[in-house]
Structure formats: C-alpha cells, structure tokens
Write a protein that binds this DNA or RNA. Structure first.
Length: 871
RNA sequence: GCCCGAAUGGCGAAACUGGUAGACGCAGCGGACUUAAAAUCCGCCGGUUGGCUAAAACCACCAUGCCGGUUCGAUUCCGGCUUCGGGCACCA
C-alpha cells in the first residue's frame, strides 16, 4: 500500500500542484452532482455574487467556507451538490453604462467571465453545469410567469407609494444615491418624496407563517431569528375610529394603536403628508400645500426620517375623541409613514416620545393619563413617560393597569362600533417596481384607460433589450417605442408595456431552487424536491433580514403553487463576518478629505515589543496616520486583490489563511505576514512529508504492544487531533481551531525523532490522517500529498478520519487544585484513583494554604479539578 | 432614533456545558547553522505591581471594555453603562 514514489518532487510549487489538481478535477468531472436516492444528499450553498468586476476577499472567505463544508460532507459519504451563479441585474451595471458609455449587458458579461476564472483558480468544488446567470431570459422568464400567477391569485397588486425624487435630474434615486443630508448624489439637489404607482407582492399574507416558522429553524443563528421577528413585528392592538367634523371626503379617520390605555391622553392626531385627508385639505389651500411639500423634503430612508426633527403642520380639520367627545385637531407629521398601518396615528404626547417632541415644538397640550404603579411622580417636562402603568385622568378607567384598561376600552369601543381589535405587522408589502433599465421587465400591459392586464403567458418572456444606449440618466426603456408598444396578437388591441423592472431581490429569492432544476422548461421540476431544502446556506450577516426574508417568502409561494414540498428553503444558516484590514491616510486640514494609502505603499515602525509606533510613506519617507481597521474597500485603499495573493502564495495558502485567521462568524483581519506564516506551514508540511518518504517504506501495521511511551503519546495526540478536527469542521464550523489542532500535531511530529519501523509506520499514519483532515481546506496540496504517500485512490471520496477510542485513553490524569477558587497546585494521578485518595492528594499538594484553616467543602470535578473551600 | 451583534497580551485569536485565562499563529527578542544573507531549526515572549535578587529562577498580587451582582469558582450567567460594527424596506 505504500510503495515508494520513484522520483519525489523536492520544492513546494503551488502553481504546478494547483494547475494539475484542477485539471484532474475538470477532466474527470469530479464535482458534477447527480440525483442519487441511494445516498444521503447534502446541498451546500453560498450566496451568489454580484458581478462587480472582480472577486474580493469577502467572496473568497464565503466560498472557501462553503467549499470546506462541501468537501468534508463528501468525505462523510454524502452526495454533495454545490452550485454557483451570478446575481447579474443591478444598479452598478447601469451606473457603468451611464458613466462610461459601456452597455450594461457587456459590462456584466465580461465581469462574469473574469470572476468565473477567479473562482476556478480557488479550486472550488462547484458543479458548473448548474450555473445560473440571472440576467438571462432563460432564467427570468420563470419569475415573470410566477408574477402573473400571483397576480391572478391576488398576491400581487398595484398601489401608490413614495420614492426619492431628484427634482433636477427628474429621476427616482435609490437610498444609496441620497446623501445623508438628503441630497441627490449627482445633482446635489434636495430630494423630495414623490408618490408613484408601483407593483407589490403581498408578503404580509405570509407574515404569521414567516414568524411562526422561525421557531422551527433550529440551526439558524438566534440573532438572525430575533432580527426577523422584530422586522415582522407582530402586535396586537386596536383600530379606533375618530369621527370627523364636517369633512368632504370622509366621516371618520381610523388609527391603529397598541396602547389604547393611553386613549384619554390623545391631544391631536398625526397623519402622513401623503394621507388623503392632507392632500384634500391642501387642494384648496396653497399655503398648506407648500407646507406639506416642505414636510416631505428629504429621502425615504427610515433612519433619515427617524433622526430628523419631528415636524408637522395643522390641517385645519378636527376629529371627535371617541370617549371624551373633545375636539381633536389633525396634523400632518413628517415621521408618520403612509405605507404603515393606516397612515394615521393618535398622538399621546404624555406617553409617546415622538408625539411629545412634536407637541413641545408646536405648543400642543401634553396630558398625563398613566402613572407609575407605585406612584413615584412623573415629570412630563423632560420627556414622555412611555412605560406601562396605571390609568389616571381617564374617567371610569382610572386605576386600571395596562391589560385591564386595554380590555375595558376595547370592549366599550367595540360595543359602540368605534373600534375593532386588530393584529398588525410592522412588515410591509414588498414593493418590487424599479424605475430602472438593467432588471427583469415586469410583465404587465396597460390599456388606454389605464387599467392593467398581464402579458399573455404564451407571449413570455418579456425580453429586456440588451443593445441599448443611455442618452441621460433615465432608463432607455421609458422612451423605446419598440419595447413600449404592444399589439395583442389575438384582438389587435394596442397596449403599452410596463417599463419598470423588478427589484433584484426577486432574482436572488429563488436562484437556489433553480440550481436544482437546470434546463427545466418550467421554473422547477421534480429534481428540486430531491435537493431542497438547502442543508447549509452561507452568506454575510448584512442579509439577515431582507434577502433572507424574501427568500423564505418566495419558497412558501413556490410551495403554494406546487413547485416544492418543503416549508423552508434552508435548514441551517451560517452568517460569516466581514474581511477588514488596516488603513493608512493623510489629511491636509482637520475636516479636509483623507487620502488613503495601500499597505504596500507604507512602512510601519515598531518598538522592541512589536507595538506600532508610526508609519511612513515609502515614496517620500514622511509620516502617514495609522487609521482604524475597516471593512476592505477600494475607497479606503485597504482592499487586497485575491488574485495577487493566489499568484504569490497559491490558492491553498489563501484558503488556509482565510479559515485560520478568525472563526467564520467574526470579522477577519487580513494580514500579509499572517499569510506568509501560513505559507511557511504549507511548505513545512511538504518538507516533512518529503523527508518521511525519503526515510523508506513502512511496514503498514503499527504495533501497540511494541510501542515506546513516546510512540504511544504521539499516537494519542494524533487521535485527539482527529477527534477535535472532526468536531470543529463537522459540527462547530470552527475551521480556525481545526487548523490549529493540525499545527499542534505537526509540531509534535517534528519533535518525535524515532526511526524504527514502528515509528515510521506511526509517522505514515500521522501524515495520512493530516492529509485527509486538511483535504477540505487545502485540496490541491492534499490531492498531491495523497499520491506521494502512496495511495492510488481519489482523496475526494476517502472517508474522513475517525478517532480510535482506545488510542485516546491516557493512564494518568492531571487535576488542578483550587483553594477558595484560586489555583494553588496541580496533581497527576492514575486514572483509577478513588475520590477519597484524590482529595487527600489534593490537600497535600496545597497544604501550605490550608494551615490554620478549616476545610468547609471539597468540590470534585472529574478529570478537571479539585476545589477546596476553607474558612 | 429603532433592531441585532461584538469587545481577551504588541496583533489575529483559544478556552466547546460556570472549572487551570492566553492553545495555535503573527510580530518582537535571544541563539544555532552560514564567509554573509535568505531559508530553516531551537529557546523566550500579559503586567514600568510587589517581594527576594548582581541578574535570573522563584513567590505573591493584578489582568478578559467599564461599574455592580450571583457563585467555592465568572471571559462564560444577571443588571446597568461605554465604544465599535451590521441592518432599517430602491446598494447587493
């Protein structure tokens, strides 16, 4: 089994080893996944990249994690499927088209071609025959068909909603294109909120299920589930009608509240600036119209709205309080969202901070109607009292606590027909219309009267024209008669096409399922249920809510139209941290712009302890500022090109370092000296294996009976490492400690200098196990080492090493001895020592700390420590 | 503003279920080999706290962002802060 290799390569040559392994995998189609019901399946998926131009280190980290798990699961004997694709629609392609006059399609496809070669250079075990490119009609046609199906089921509808409007460019801006002070990124103009009709998915119809099933996602991080719970935001409250006094468009205004106990503290009502009541009042009042326009200045981002000063304007309309019958004025306020609840809230300035701020600003009355259960005095001059408490100044409800007041008011108002109990969700329906070119066309048509009809199914797909030029910043679709004009093939009716495209989250909501049905002429076929749900889904924590909620929603929709049978798309989720690096910069003036430098442009001086003292720019030898450790980005100059690292050190070193530098869910600090250290480790393994093989053939069977105590010790260390690596890679997904365990074992082998047959046999066992343990992480190296160690089999399908129970057994055990919780000694005893003898030995070991003391208690933690409590 | 995280030596980190804080690696320091350098190998490496010292060894004390609590024992659990990061519905 271990016949010597005739001519051993001498120096480690990453480029040659990696090219040869990759060629072998490609020629033998090693990673092509075929449905096989005889084997347990494992679907391992990393979030697909946006083809921005080149891979960044975040991709390398994400895809290496997926690849390590895939290769490990395969060694456990599972039928592994690991696909890859490109999320190809999106804003950057359109920005490139506008700025550099390069067609979005061309820009995207050439980026994909380059990034695919980079992924291949990393040696990732992908089944490329399943590749998905979301901007191709063969992909997006199926989401157009599903959209029409959902329209027919009533899960798609059209309504007005607000967007960021740049009044100079006359275009809609993405939140990203609005500066923090509310200005357009190109024009610098103050952005306005503008209402336009848009298409929506009724995700709220699934809100309860999306919430309930979080409990079944046992292997999702709690942080993600908590974020999703809060995002869905189920609340139980009351919809209360306030009768309107002499109003032309309605006789009542409905508000939603979770705090009906504060109802008697209502001193005004706030509605959104886009609320029908506000719009109607402004129609005949130019001054009010101007005030409302001023109120809607600024972008639509929630963070911006919440941080802005609370402002409002009185509409000159009054309502009647349903209990006190008092007159309540109605205001429009900049913090009320039309898209949430009824677009109107009852204002209780005594017990809601935002209402308090608005009331304070405009001199509206602030009434206390809740007091603390144990009355400690409440000061409403400093802010609202928002805790639950007991009603006061509330007539018959005085003295009731929250729950009792809620019930009493709900019962009374329901009986009077003025309120209904209502479960509300913070989650809003998913607006999918984008006024952009580079996206999937929304397959709808408009009649001359403005009504909408779906594109007939046999006329799908609606193909996005790829060969178009931007004349300004507006989507070319909006002015392309060839695209817009549509004649019904049956009736000859002239219609116009929808020119908006889908939110790109639509494509990324179902790509994972399409990987399971490559080439199918429906969205999915029966193969989807073979692979789904995903066994491990890996991606950045930044997707914790939006993508991962849309992805769950879409899976349920596909289930309800019969494409899949599972309820959830992924059983296990791993959110990896960011890749960060040091920054270096210079700043001429205190608030002037910072000029960033890359790590290769600077030199860092250190003191005798290795502390960084200062950094100088190599070009002019003058100092630069050592900045914070930040997420890698082009603008901060701290990005490291993965390709240059692969070229310099090889993919295996890059993969090993990415897995070693931090556990997967923490941020990873890139350090080139760290990469060099990992490269040393790789070369060390190579050299040690080469030396081991040069020492001659081994007998093949290790004899425990003849083993020296050093051999027994090394063999125990080997099997301890095997047990740890299996646990760390397979269960904990902590690849950093797995690599550390292999390093420790390597250090032990290096100290082991016996040369007997038995010793060489043990060394062969060690190197074979290390090769297998590292195979998922450094696959090219291990592919080569496996052959050098004399094995003819394919390492990809070798079983992952299992620890032998008898090799793990040690005769002695070392216990820590504590006195009053402080470590005071250690004892090493035979494993079989009786408890009474252990206690006696422990007392002897720490005798000087027990002098003059009374032993009150002895706590024995088996295999770990003895804790003696004295007084 | 709201929601979710994180914080441990000079640095990245480890400690898996409340049980010996700092495994493994980087940087640094000392040594071996070498004409020399590189590479490699060996050793040291929390503390400008105290004791004993010529120095070391050794011993004690302190130390896991800050303040407090529970416990024989807390990096780990609880309460209150601080700072940094992610998300907030049109970046993906």
């Amino acid at each position: 089994m271990t016949d010597p290799i005739p001519s051993l390569p001498t120096a480690y040559d990453a480029a040659a080893i990696e090219a040869s392994a990759q060629e072998f995998w490609q020629q033998n189609q090693c990673f092509k996944a075929v449905e096989d019901s005889a084997k347990e399946k494992f679907y391992c998926l990393s979030m697909l990249p946006y083809p921005s131009g080149a891979l960044h280190m975040g991709h390398v980290r994400n895809y290496t994690i997926g690849d390590v798990v895939s290769r490990y699961q395969r060694m456990l004997g599972k039928n592994v499927m690991q696909p890859m694709g490109f999320d190809a629609f999106g804003l950057p392609a359109e920005n490139a088209a506008i700025k550099h006059k390069v067609p979005a399609a061309q820009w995207t496809y050439s980026n994909i071609d380059y990034m695919r070669t980079q992924l291949k250079a990393l040696g990732l075990a992908y089944d490329w025959s399943r590749e998905v490119i979301t901007c191709k009609p063969d992909y997006y046609r199926f989401e157009q068909a599903l959209f029409i199906k959902l329209f027919e089921k009533g899960l798609v509808y059209r309504k007005n909603s607000v967007v960021n409007w740049d009044p100079v460019e006359q275009t809609v801006l993405a939140n990203e294109q609005v500066s923090p002070d509310g200005r357009g990124w190109r024009s610098g103009a103050l952005v306005e909120k503008k209402e336009i009709p848009q298409w929506f998915f009724k995700i709220t119809a699934y809100a309860q299920e999306l919430l309930d099933e979080l409990d079944n996602l046992k292997d999702w991080p709690d942080s993600v589930k908590t974020m999703q719970r809060h995002w869905i935001g189920r609340s139980e409250g009351l919809e209360i009608d306030f009768a309107l006094i002499d109003n032309a468009i309605s006789d009542k205004l409905t508000v939603y509240t979770t705090r009906p106990d504060t109802l008697c503290g209502v001193t005004f009502i706030s509605v959104a600036a886009e609320h029908p009541l506000a719009k109607h009042a402004a129609a005949s009042n130019a001054e009010l119209a101007a005030a409302l326009a001023d109120l809607s200045k600024g972008g639509t981002a929630e963070a911006e709205i919440e941080k802005a000063e609370k402002r409002g304007v009185a509409l000159g309309i009054d309502a009647i309080h349903p209990i006190t019958r008092a007159k309540v004025p109605i205001w429009a306020a900049n913090f009320v969202l039309m898209g949430y609840g009824t677009g109107a809230v009852m204002a209780v300035p005594g017990h809601d901070q935002r209402d308090w701020e608005m009331a304070s600003k405009y001199g509206l009355p602030i009434t206390q109607v809740i007091r603390a259960p144990i009355d400690s005095g409440v000061d409403l001059t400093a802010g609202a009292y928002i805790d639950y408490g007991v009603c006061m100044n509330s007539g018959k409800y005085d003295g009731l606590a929250f729950k009792a007041a809620f019930e009493a008011i709900a019962a009374d108002l329901s009986a009077a027909g003025r309120a209904t109990r209502k479960v509300n969700f913070r989650l809003r329906d998913w607006g999918v219309s984008r006024q952009r070119y580079w996206g999937c066309p929304i397959p709808m048509l408009y009649r001359a009267d403005g009504s909408s009809v779906p594109v007939p199914l046999d006329q799908l797909p609606v193909i996005l024209p790829e060969n178009v030029a931007f004349s300004g910043v507006t989507s070319p679709l909006k002015t392309d008669p060839n695209f817009i004009n549509y004649t019904d093939p049956v009736t000859g009716e002239k219609l116009t096409r929808e020119t908006d495209t889908f939110d790109t989250f639509v494509e990324s909501s179902w790509y994972y399922a399409r990987y399971c049905s490559p080439g199918a002429n429906t969205m999915l076929d029966a193969r989807a249920n073979h692979w789904l749900p995903i066994d491990l889904y890996i991606g950045g924590i930044e997707h914790a809510v939006m993508h991962l909620l849309y992805f769950r929603f879409w899976h349920k929709v596909m289930r309800d139209v019969g494409f899949v049978s599972s309820n959830e798309p992924a059983t296990k989720l791993l959110c990896q941290g960011m890749v960060v690096a040091d920054t270096y910069y210079r700043q001429e003036t205190e608030d002037g712009p910072k000029t960033y430098f890359t790590p290769t442009e600077v030199s860092v001086e250190r003191d005798a302890k290795g502390r960084a003292l200062r950094a100088i720019l190599l070009k002019d030898s003058a100092p630069v500022v050592i900045g914070a450790v930040e997420k890698m980005s082009k603008s901060k100059g701290n990005g490291v090109d993965p390709q240059s690292m692969i070229d310099k050190y090889g993919a295996d070193t890059v993969r090993l370092f990415s897995m070693f530098a931090a556990p997967p869910d923490q941020s990873l600090e890139w350090s080139e000296t760290g990469v060099e250290g990992m490269h040393r480790f790789v070369k060390r393994i190579w050299r040690m294996v080469t030396e081991h093989l040069a020492a001659g053939a081994t007998t093949g069977v290790f004899s425990n009976a003849d083993a020296t105590s050093e051999q027994k010790e090394l063999r125990t260390q080997l099997h301890e490492a095997i047990a740890k690596v299996g646990r760390d890679v397979g269960e904990r997904l902590n690849f950093n400690t797995a690599i550390a365990a292999v390093m420790e074992l390597t250090n032990a082998i290096s100290k082991f200098d016996e040369t007997s047959d038995n010793a060489r046999t043990l060394r062969q066992e060690c190197w074979s196990a290390i090769t297998l343990m590292l195979a998922p992480i450094a696959p090219h190296l291990c592919h080569q080492l496996w052959q050098m160690l004399g094995y003819r089999s394919l390492i990809l399908d070798q079983p992952f090493p299992q620890a032998e129970a008898c090799a793990l057994v040690r005769d002695d055990v070392t216990l820590a001895v504590q006195v009053n919780g402080k470590l005071r000694g250690q004892i090493t005893l035979a494993k079989s020592t009786a408890n009474a003898d252990i206690e006696a030995e422990a007392k002897i070991a720490v005798a000087k700390y027990l002098e003059g003391m009374t032993v009150k208690k002895i706590i024995l933690v088996p295999g770990k420590l003895v804790s003696i409590v004295v007084a």
